[in-house]
Simulated assay, not measured.
Amino acid sequence: MPQQQWDRVPIDAQSVDAPLSQSAIFLVVTVKDNPTALEQACSALDGIDDLIKTVGFRDLSGRLSCVVGIGHLAWNRIAPDRQPTQLRPFARIEGPVHVAPATPGDLLFHIRAERADLCFEFERLLLDSLGTSVTVIDEVSGFRYFDSRDLLGFVDGTANPTGVDLPASALIGDEDPDFAGGSYVVVQKYQHDLNAWKAIPTHVQEAIIGRTKIDNVEIDDDDAPRKSHKSLATIVDADGNECDILRDNMPFGQPGRQEFGTYFIGYARHLWVIEEMLRRMYVGDPVGSYDRLLDVSTPLTGTTFFAPARPALQRVIGAALARLAPKISQE
C-alpha cells in the first residue's frame, strides 16, 4: 500500500505496532450481563490512558503499553449501533486430527513492557478498577526467551512485517474509515509436549517448522510431500499477493508443573487472513495434510477481538457511558 494512504491513520493506533517487549501479560475477561457491570467496565476502559501513565512514569525506559481488544458480543453491548465490518466470533475449527476450540472473551488486555514488574503492577491496578464487573477467563504471563525463540527452540516471529509494511498488514485503512487505524486480534494459548518434541530428530523438527533450528534459515519446501508450518501459515490473496499479519507471540511456562507453551497473538488488517492461516494449519493443504506442529502443541483457547485506534476507543466508550448513565440511575 502506498505510504501516503497511511497519513490519514490516527497516530496513536493503541500501540499495536509497539516494539516487541521483554515481558507481557495476556488478560482475557468476560463482562457480567448487567448495566452496572458494563458501566464499571467501560469506566475502567475510559481510564486506561491515565493508568498507563501512572504506572509507566515509574520507569519511562520500561515502555509500558496496553492494547485493549473488544470481542463481538461485548461490542454489541457497548456500541450496538456500529461495529467494525469484519468483527465476528472465533469459529471452532475441526480438522481431521486436531481441533481449534472457541473460548469466551469480552475484553483482551495485551500488556507489554521491558520489565515484568510494570506489567504486574498495571494488571493489578486494572483489575482493581474493573472490580466485580468482570470474570477472568485467562491470564498468561509471557517472557522473551533468549534470541526471540519459542520453547521448542526455534526463532518465532521472523516473518513479521516491518517498516511501511507493518501498518499495511496490521491496521485498517480506508476500507472501513470509521475504524481506520484499528486492528483485528486473534489469540490462542498453546501448550507444548516438550518430551514428545525432544524425541523428534532435529532435521525432522526443521522440516515441520520450515526453518533451520540454529541459524533460522528458511527451508524451501514447495516440492515437499508435506508442507511445513511456515508454508501453511503463508497466505496469498486471489491476486497472488502475500498477506502478512503482525505476531507478538510469547513463551510462558512453569517447569515445576510441566507447563510449557506459546501464547499466539496475531494482529491483522483483514481478519480473514488469520482465519485462513488457521484453517490451513488444522485442515491441511491439501486437506488432511495438517500442520504437524499440532501433534505436540495443543490449543487451549481461541478468541477474536477488535482493537480500535485510541480515538475510536475513546469515542465508543464515551458514547456507551452516556447511554448507560440513565439505566444506572434507574436501578
Score class of each variant (00 low, 15 high):
C66P: 05
R58S: 10
L73E: 13
R88T: 05
Q86L: 04
G62I: 03
W75Q: 02
D50Q: 15
L64D: 05
Q40H: 12
T30N: 15
V29D: 01
F26M: 15
G47H: 10
I70R: 01
R58T: 12
T30P: 04
I52Y: 03
I78R: 03
R58V: 08
I78T: 06
L60P: 11
R82P: 01
G69E: 04
N76Q: 13
F26T: 13
D49A: 14
D49V: 13
L51I: 08
L60M: 15
L87R: 06
L38M: 11
P96W: 00
F90M: 01
H72S: 06
G62P: 08
Q86N: 04
G56N: 12
D81Y: 14
E94N: 01
I78P: 00
T30M: 04
D33T: 12
N34C: 14
G47K: 06
G47W: 04
T85Q: 10
H72L: 09
T30S: 10
P80F: 10
I25Q: 11
L73A: 14
T30Y: 05
T30A: 07
L87Q: 05
K32Q: 09
V55F: 05
A44V: 06
I52L: 06
H72P: 02
A74N: 03
D50Y: 15
G69T: 04
W75N: 01
T36L: 08
G62N: 06
S61Q: 12
V55G: 00
I78G: 00
V68Q: 05
V28T: 13
P80T: 07
R77C: 04
V67T: 14
A37C: 09
L64E: 05
L60Y: 11
L27S: 14
T36S: 12
I52Q: 04
L51E: 05
L27A: 13
A79F: 08
L45N: 01
T36G: 11
G56R: 11
I48S: 03
A79Y: 08
L60W: 11
I25N: 08
D59W: 03
A24P: 03
A41Y: 09
R92H: 01
A91C: 03
P35W: 15
T54L: 12
K32H: 08
L87V: 09
V29C: 07
I52E: 05
Q83M: 14
V31T: 07
V31G: 02
D46T: 02
A24K: 06
L60F: 14
P96Q: 06
R88F: 08
P89E: 01
R92C: 00
R77M: 02
V28L: 08
D81V: 09
E39F: 10
K32E: 07
S65F: 07
